[in-house]
Amino acid sequence: MVSRLDATEKALALIDELEEKHGPLMFYQAGGCCEGTQPQCFEKGGFYPRMNDVLIGHIKGYEFWIDRDLFEYWQYSHFMLDVLDGFGPGGFSLETPLGKTFKVHYRLFNEEELKDLEPVERNA
């Protein structure tokens, strides 16, 4: 099956650092407004996905949820989690005090990949 989600080495290293300090983690990417559209990292259980939000995969075993409307727009895209220096628009994410921000790079799946995508899970 083709994964909808991967992470760069830089993102994985930051996740290790955050995990050591905060314990189990989770990710949520909102559709805009106050949270912006960058993924946010929380302590596991520190954010509750809304009804019909979509679990698109796991990074290092940690759930990566996205806003239900955002999924409708990006459902044919691969998400690559990366990290940049600087502050993202949300400010609530665990990496913010470190002067870092998570960022997703997108690319469209090709026809072959679309035939074998990992299924998603919707929050009930």
Rank of each mutant, 00 (worst) to 15 (best):
K21V: 15
D116C: 11
G86K: 02
Y48K: 12
G61I: 06
E35G: 11
M51S: 07
P119E: 12
P89I: 11
M1T: 09
K10T: 13
R4Y: 04
D116P: 00
G31I: 09
R50H: 14
Y48E: 15
C34Q: 07
F87E: 15
P39D: 10
G99F: 06
I66A: 03
Q38R: 10
P97T: 11
A7E: 13
D16F: 14
P39S: 10
G46R: 00
E19C: 15
V2I: 10
L114T: 01
N123G: 00
Q40H: 07
E112K: 01
F27V: 02
L94K: 00
D67Y: 10
F109K: 00
F102E: 13
H78Q: 00
L114W: 04
Q38P: 00
D16K: 11
L98V: 07
L81M: 08
A11L: 15
D67C: 14
L14W: 12
V104R: 01
L12D: 07
L84Q: 14
L114H: 03
L14T: 08
C34T: 03
L18A: 15
R68K: 10
L55P: 03
T101W: 05
K44P: 02
L70R: 06
G45C: 07
F92D: 14
L84C: 07
I66S: 04
L18Q: 07
F92M: 13
A11M: 13
E9R: 14
K115D: 11
V104N: 09
A11D: 14
Q38V: 06
R50E: 15
D85K: 06
P89L: 13
T101C: 14
A30T: 02
C41T: 06
M80Q: 10
H105R: 03
M26G: 05
Y62N: 05
C34N: 08
E111N: 05
D116R: 01
N52I: 02
K44T: 00
E20I: 06
H105N: 10
K60C: 13
T8D: 12
E63P: 01
L81N: 02
E121W: 03
Y48I: 09
F87R: 10
L94C: 12
N123Y: 12
D67L: 07
P24S: 15
G86Y: 05
N110K: 01
L18C: 14
A30F: 11
